[in-house]
Design a protein around this nucleic acid. Structure first.
Length: 669
RNA sequence: GCGCCCGUAGCUCAGUUGGAUAGAGCGUCUGCCUUCUAAGCAGAGGGUCGGGGGUUCGAAUCCCUCCGGGCGCGCCA
């Protein structure tokens, strides 16, 4: 509701200024610092003062006097040196917000432009860790935001099943474990295969240092895996597919689901790169270097705009190798091909088959080189692409975009977004707590980077287990009579709430220094705090239901909150919200009605943290309200109905906000 | 060397396109459970927004510079 009024006021001011002063200005809109100064403010008169060469306060006064009625605005006041402050019609805002809530977000039509969000993308050679969780939580939350805004979204989780990381673990099984494919298959059927590989991967990496000769095996192993034939390839296939299933299971614990798993093996076997290479050569996007250090390589010239380093006279420094002198393609080259495919610009497609069914019943598809299932939905052909990748890969993402641009696909280049975020690191204390030896330099730093190669990191499932155990202990102490299954379910919801909130409350470009103390906290600015506000709201209604069946049934049958709302008269409503006594209730209502504005801002900034912040503020306002007003013992039936409606409204907005973060509101906790 | 990001309370972080008296959580201290659950509420204390210059009616926010930190720049992925 708030954003609608904001836009309306902006437009009214702009139109009036154009008419009255013949001036076309940007109208800045902001929130006044205190509610006593109104709800929407504009400092537009300061800018206008410059142009008209008149005192801003006088202009503001003139506008306030002459602009006339703006729908939803009670009055306009002049404040300070020339601010225009709008005071909203509180009762009207209440009614409008209530009716807005019942509508709910629009579902995207099947032919709407498609947004592809690529996230998670964990190398399928070891267990998922805390850093992967941030990627997936951000990606999934952004998907929820897009869908909430009525956009059609396809979620892809890219699987690099033919890379060195998988090759290294395959090497480990062959040479360190001395296991056959059949033995590995048996091991893969056991639980926690991803944990086993986590350790094995670290051991292999270490063995490369103690026995450098083994490193020479890597090239052949990689080649065998890429070609997809023989025992080594079979081994790699078992490893990667099993671990992808482990990752899906881990992500399902957080409620994260996917549409498609595009795999590197199919990009290779279906010769996606060849198709991209043809285009790049034909359009002169890449050229064969004949001299210098890159002689024999196909390189792409990076323009200044796309992150070239602009070293004068040194062409090599600004060019990125796409095809090596031995004819093999680099990682970025494959990525350009994949990005072209996402936009439907490659001229080739995968085959697809069903891979997995999520608990919701949703099917995850996987790419195939042949023998696809005939009823596969159409994938790719996006209008907009978001790649959720950490900020260290900014340069490579720029190369991909530069590739699109060099091919003449400017609009697709503009619609390729690197949804960038900073990594999750460990505090030195946390690393030590987990038994890692730190170098003296590392111990001095404020954080230590997670390293899959070294086996340094907090595994996602371990963290989830600890969170669930901690939540379970709390639930057990509060609800000893509740059935065991229910207590476990509540503990799970709380654990996910704590974890997802923790991962999403930081803005994307903040490095999270992970510590168990903060992550395991259920108090203060946390997910459980927000969930608790929902539980409190629901408890009021549950108790009410026990007291008076009738009222509740009336509300239920009408399918909206307005049944209660109707039982308090417009006059009394106005009185309840009137300043100054009604200011606190009004502020909470205003916040509840600002959900749409917050979502808009979060979407514009691509920042799920805005939603997290909003949910916390609303929960805080509600907890305060809960403390001050004992609703069920309220004697004035009209006021009681009003407070109950407010409670319901806040509960719904909180549920919506948390849902965008992938967090559920429990019935009790 | 070049490029990008960051520096805000003891700690961890917010601060939307420049706006009114810079906010929150944690931690510390003090209160509040006979009420709809204390995973809560109220209060106290805590700041030269890294330093210095500039632009502006107005700067944590924009520009320059210095200091301090992070990341990237590979015929790895």
């Amino acid at each position: 509701m708030y954003h609608i009024l904001e836009a309306r006021i902006r437009k009214a001011l702009r139109d009036f200024i154009r008419r009255r002063y013949d001036a076309d200005v940007q109208v800045p809109i902001e929130r006044p610092p205190r509610i006593a100064m109104g709800e929407v403010a504009s400092p537009v008169c300061f800018e206008l003062a410059k142009r008209l060469k008149r005192a801003p306060r006088h202009i503001a006064q003139e506008i306030a006097n002459q602009i006339g009625k703006i729908d939803g605005v009670e009055r306009l006041e002049v404040a300070g040196g020339g601010y225009l402050n709008a005071f909203l019609d509180r009762a009207g805002f209440f009614a409008a917000t209530l009716s807005g809530v019942t509508k709910g977000p629009a579902e995207a039509p099947a032919d709407a432009p498609k947004n592809i969000v690529e996230h998670t993308n964990i190398n399928p050679n070891k267990a998922a860790h805390i850093g992967h969780l941030r990627n997936a939580a951000l990606g999934d939350s952004f998907v929820r935001l897009l869908r909430h805004a009525g956009r059609r979204v396809e979620v892809q989780n890219y699987i690099d099943n033919t890379g060195v990381q998988v090759a290294d673990v395959a090497l480990g099984f062959l040479h360190l474990e001395k296991k056959s494919a059949a033995e590995v298959r048996a091991l893969a059927a056991q639980p926690r295969f991803d944990y086993f590989c986590w350790d094995l991967y670290a051991r292999v990496t270490q063995s490369f240092e103690t026995e450098p000769a083994r490193l020479a095996l890597r090239g052949d192993t990689l080649k065998a895996i890429e070609e997809g034939h023989g025992a080594v390839a079979e081994l790699a296939e078992i490893i990667s597919t099993t671990i992808v299933r482990c990752h899906l299971r881990t992500m399902e614990r957080l409620g994260i689901e996917y549409d498609l798993l595009p795999r590197e093996s199919e990009i290779l076997h279906l010769k996606f790169w060849d198709a991209a290479f043809q285009q790049l050569k034909a359009r002169g996007a890449i050229r064969l270097a004949t001299s210098g250090k890159n002689a024999g390589c196909w390189v792409m010239q990076m323009s200044d705009a796309e992150g070239g380093t602009q070293n004068e006279g040194d062409e090599d420094a600004d060019s990125k190798i796409i095809v090596r002198s031995n004819g093999t393609v680099t990682y970025v080259g494959k990525d350009i091909a994949y990005q072209l495919w996402k936009f439907g610009l490659l001229g080739r497609d995968f085959h697809y088959s069903r891979f997995h069914t999520h608990p919701s019943g949703h099917t995850v598809w996987v790419t195939r080189a042949d023998d696809g299932e005939a009823d596969a939905p159409p994938f790719g052909h996006a209008a907009q692409v978001y790649n959720v990748i950490d900020s260290r890969q900014a340069y490579l993402q720029n190369v991909v975009v530069a590739g699109l641009r060099a091919l003449g696909f400017d609009s697709q280049a503009d619609r390729s977004m690197h949804f960038s975020y900073e990594i999750v690191a460990l505090t030195p204390r946390c690393a030590k707590e987990m038994g890692y030896e730190l170098s003296p330099e590392d111990a001095q730093r404020s954080f230590v980077e997670v390293s899959g190669r070294r086996g340094l990191g907090v595994k996602a499932d371990d963290l989830l287990d600890r969170l669930e155990a901690a939540a379970r202990a709390e639930v057990d102490s509060r609800h000893p009579q509740t059935p065991e299954i229910e207590r476990a379910a509540i503990a799970h919801i709380i654990a996910i709430g704590a974890l997802r909130y923790f991962l999403l409350k930081y803005t994307r470009n903040t490095v999270i220094a992970f510590d168990f103390k903060d992550a395991l906290s259920f108090e203060g600015e946390t997910g459980p705090y927000c969930q608790y506000a929902i539980v409190r709201a629901r408890n009021i209604w549950r108790k009410l239901a026990e007291q008076s069946r009738q009222l509740v049934e009336k509300a239920d049958s009408s399918g909206s909150d307005s049944a209660f709302f109707d039982s308090c008269s417009p006059e009394s409503l106005k009185a309840f919200l009137a300043a100054p006594e009604g200011d606190e209730l009004w502020e909470m209502l205003l916040l509840a009605g600002s959900f749409g504005a917050q979502v808009e801002a979060a979407l514009a900034a691509q920042e799920p943290a805005f939603v997290a912040k909003y949910a916390f503020q609303l929960a805080q306002a509600f907890n305060n309200f809960y403390h001050k007003h004992h609703i069920l013992s309220e004697e004035d039936p009209s006021r009681k109905a009003f407070l109950l409606t407010l409670t319901k409204l806040v509960e719904r907005q909180l549920v919506l906000a948390l849902d965008l973060l992938g967090i559920e509101g429990p019935e009790k906790m």
